[in-house]
Design a protein around this nucleic acid. Structure first.
Lengths: 222, 222
DNA sequence: GACAATAGTGAACACTCGTTTACTCAAAGT
DNA sequence: ACTTTGAGTAAACGAGTGTTCACTATTGTC
């Protein structure tokens, strides 16, 4: 009887919102739920549809309004993770390289970035090898896009101008692999073990240095 | 009534065998069953206990005579995969390095080895990121053991004598990561696409060359 | 040759699973 | 103001899940 309009909405719309906006919100709730469930260390392929909907606070049947099956949700997560990854590259591009200790500071930035967006990295790490073939392929494609973009950036910044674009892509491919591998190391770091952390970080830096050292003495004509 | 003794064994013992030998055989049947189920591209973490026992031709309850749960079976598989991996190293050690084109021929040998033992590599690739924390950790340990062994071999063969053991381990760690990554590429190769295969192989060779080029110009004192 | 140990069986349990169906009821379209 | 649309609900289904228990029958031991 009051003018309170929120009372009249027991189920779906929680507040002012267009229809498709609300749908989008539920879609994101489902994706978030999947990411949340993986935070305990479980792999994406061990999640169940009902679990995800339960975590999202939605009835199982509602799932089908958004995805055909878990695989399709996984593909959506791959895309979201890809966007997250590109954002890293874009930020690095915008602020330019720090004058000294380029490698070390890049690694530190990356480490923080992985920790901040650990949900996406955890998903990627778990589905990269363990997911369905479709998801694996999507991740692989996303990675190579990222590597190519990175190579293009290096060309634009006139780093290693002697090297062909193909060679730059090769190098970046190796860098990306190393980065993804380091990401899983970062995520599995035991809490509060400062020593293990710096050790891992130092190792990561040295690996990248090794790669770029190789790049520097790479003969351009193969 | 006949002297045929095989007739009298409808369930357990199929032929002449000691008790623990038969148990060992069933244990291997379970592990093989898990590997078989993964050949379709499924990840280890999506297998169910009943599926595995069904594939092994054994009743579900029998599983518990061998493993506490699937995780424990996974750990046994990690160990078996580790043995397989070491065998590669041992063979390479025994026959020594081919005089020319060391890298290229090593890669070809490795490629064949991965294809021959694809079941273990598929398992490792799927459980490396997607498995339970315990399994992931076990794989990580196995990999670093392998890298250290490889580094020790390089020292023994007097390759890169300028470099410290720590540096060699670092290099080999990167090599192992690259190898594992290449293994999943090899396994996902579409059948009969010769061009994609040589392309992937060439890329793999170049990545390793890049690493060793970096190693050659690595300054020993850090 | 009787006895204990145990690898594998078969049935049952209490769940969880993915999917389908008919439904409600607020938003969007007219 | 009405009708249409469709996101989310509630309930049910059949199938598959992990685990338990009492059991059978063969191997190894005294």
């Amino acid at each position: 009887m009051t003018t309170d309009s929120a009372r009249r909405a027991p189920s779906s719309a929680p507040a002012g919102s267009t229809r498709q906006a609300q749908k989008q919100r539920t879609r994101e709730k489902l994706m978030d739920a999947a990411l949340d469930l993986m935070e305990a260390g479980r792999g994406f392929s061990s999640l169940s549809l009902r679990e995800v909907t339960r975590e999202a606070g939605v009835v199982p049947a509602a799932f089908y309004r958004h995805f055909r099956d878990l695989d399709e949700l996984g593909l959506a997560l791959v895309e979201a993770a890809g966007v997250t990854l590109r954002r890293l590259l874009r930020e690095a591009r915008r602020q330019g390289l720090p004058p000294t200790q380029v490698l070390r500071s890049s690694v530190l930035i990356y480490k923080n970035y992985v920790k901040q967006n650990h949900r996406y990295f955890r998903f990627a790490a778990s589905a990269r090898g363990g997911g369905s073939p479709a998801i694996r392929k999507a991740i692989r494609i996303e990675e190579s896009h990222f590597a190519n973009e990175m190579a293009q950036d290096m060309r634009d910044m006139n780093l290693m101008p002697r090297l062909s674009m193909d060679t730059l892509s090769l190098i970046c491919g190796l860098v990306v692999t190393t980065m993804m591998n380091a990401a899983t190391d970062i995520l599995d770091l035991p809490e509060g073990q400062a020593q293990a952390e710096t050790e891992m970080t130092e190792n990561f830096i040295l690996q990248l240095r090794l790669i770029f050292l190789g790049a520097r003495s790479w003969s351009p004509g193969r």
